[in-house]
Design a protein around this nucleic acid. Sequence first.
DNA 1: TTAAACTGTTGTCATAAGACAACTTTTTCC
DNA 2: GGAAAAAGTTGTCTTATGACAACAGTTTAA
Lengths: 189, 189
Amino acid sequence: MYTELENYIKNCVAVEDKELEKITSFFKPLKTTRNEMLCNIGQVCNHFYFIKKGCLRLYEIDDKGNDITGYFALENSIISANTSFILQKPSRDCLVSLEPSELLAIGRNDFYQLVNTIPSFASVYHQFIEFAFIHSQMRIYSFLGMEGIDKLKWVMEHEPKLLSRISSKAVASYLGMTNSTLSKLRAKL
Amino acid sequence: MYTELENYIKNCVAVEDKELEKITSFFKPLKTTRNEMLCNIGQVCNHFYFIKKGCLRLYEIDDKGNDITGYFALENSIISANTSFILQKPSRDCLVSLEPSELLAIGRNDFYQLVNTIPSFASVYHQFIEFAFIHSQMRIYSFLGMEGIDKLKWVMEHEPKLLSRISSKAVASYLGMTNSTLSKLRAKL
DNA sequence: TTAAACTGTTGTCATAAGACAACTTTTTCC
DNA sequence: GGAAAAAGTTGTCTTATGACAACAGTTTAA
């Protein structure tokens, strides 16, 4: 049940079996269908999700009704509507499953109890946030200056899984372009 | 000497005077001229900086020789070439002073010693990273979809200090546009 | 103080990308 | 399995922005 999550944690920090067991005991399994909304606009996000199987997407809808993807999370990674989760404010993001998924969910109270009592878990969270920040900065550097064709090449090189796994529409919203533009760029390659 | 830094810390967490004194004792004052390079491309960044006075800018140079700003830091905030500092790899970013500045610098070893021994300092760092991540995500949402004029309005609303304090050229590199485009957009308002 | 360097403005022109629409292909789910 | 919905492709047209250049204004530093 918890093998993947245990591996994820062990991959971040050295941790005793006893602690590991305590940590995982707070996670509850959860199956979703496709397009299931785990956090909607206006809700306060109260869970962190580990993905055993499937794929989630965090996105925001702008004034014109277009959506922008914050990030994707595939198997063996964690995600939540972070801003809402951290600040405990109504979310401006939607967190949604792109495929039928198998998740392990932990509630916010349990999450912070673990963070505050188990240093190795705090370290896991800390590493997640550090990585998330580094990744966001990388995306700013890569997507703010580049032309469309170069953004596409960048993702092909650095995050090829996204292209094989995720719909063009969603990828376009991650690259900051329309789907028709992405389609035309793909044809050019 | 350390008043501003102490206030910065106290603003994040409740902390005893004794601890506060221990924390600040690791920070060394440092004055810079304008355009002084605190971390250059290829160097491994080994310091975190608190800004008492002045302004720093973190940026990267892309293939075409254009530069993109990662973020700015003004008075009473902290900054480093985070990616390099965290991963201990040669930096792709430059960290530079935009004005003559008064800084308090802490070396990486001291920094992590504090993080590992003083929970309240760990919390300060943790909050910094959380905020930095949230801010980066916000920028992705705001700048990836928007047209130039809306990006400019966004900064006017959310980070007006940048516009009054920082050169147009640097602001343009923060917004992901050329300086001539920014100048024309300003004229339109 | 003054020359040099840098910054910002404005113009023209070229081009990448958005908007919209029509159409095809694929996927979904009853 | 098949109808309906969604996703993807491709075309035309428009527009925002980049590239480049000339110039003006400002700052810097010797």
